[in-house]
Design a binder for these strands. Structure first.
Lengths: 134, 134
DNA sequence: CTTACTGCAAATTGTTTGCAGTAGC
DNA sequence: GCTACTGCAAACAATTTGCAGTAAG
């Protein structure tokens, strides 16, 4: 089954690809409405899933909602409880944690995903500024 | 608003409560059909959400699907890609990983959840036995 | 020319909500 | 007796699928 490089797929790939991008299908649709209206939501889902299979992007799950991550390399995420943004994190210590998990359970660990919840750098600054005003 | 201890809630709590239990609403329903038919799926969802609010259980997300975890204490999970079961893991090293994440991002980390994917102890044994037969 | 892909609508899945009746306290 | 909770159906959100037509190779 030979894959085709359709116009729709190229536009969708351009929107989602690249590190730091975390969008759901609805958000991709919103961008498409500006750039190239007429593309259906089913096509968006189909192409996002194809891009996942091809290893161009990956599907992640943060705070119970799923997103397509423009960076296919394995990494973890921080969700800011204040602004709602998602940030990539690359943690050197997770390799050892995987080993500890393997030792503890007797399992073979193939991969992992960690979702941190907290207050991001920007929102922390905002809150400190507010404190000064009082 | 004073909460009531209804018969339905007690039965649902008995089914889901306790460490090692990871069920979705449908699975709780399946048990209920044997023990106490007539309870509606909406009641199951409402009570599982109430039990979460009360801190008796917690809602988790593994492999893109959500489950209610009978153990409300913070801990991580291993998903076995072979048998599909979910196992609890308590990892001492995750505290340092949280600190590394905070240092790296400049954020305040409030909590985290890690989902490991791998092959569990039992399934590993099965596969090794299969190898011996060949 | 072949058939993978598209757009649309309908179907499916997981979960929540509106409402009249029921049962804790 | 008051009102939180129930069961049911309907609503809702997110995603997938069936199908006839289109376009990539």
């Amino acid at each position: 089954m030979q894959r085709r490089h359709t116009r729709q797929k190229q536009i969708i790939q351009k929107i989602i690809e690249g590190p730091g991008k975390h969008m759901n299908a609805e958000e991709v649709m919103a961008v498409l409405k500006q750039e190239e209206p007429g593309i259906g939501i089913a096509t968006v889902y189909r192409n996002l899933n194809l891009l996942c299979e091809e290893g161009v992007i990956q599907k992640i799950n943060v705070q119970g909602r799923s997103f397509y991550d423009g960076n296919p390399a394995p990494h973890d995420h921080l969700y800011c409880a204040r602004c709602g943004e998602i940030f990539d994190i690359v943690l050197s210590e997770m390799k050892e944690v995987e080993e500890q998990a393997a030792r503890l359970t007797g399992a073979v660990i193939l991969s992992h995903h960690t979702a941190f919840e907290g207050i991001c750098h920007n929102c922390r600054k905002d809150e400190e500024e507010k404190k000064q005003w009082n």
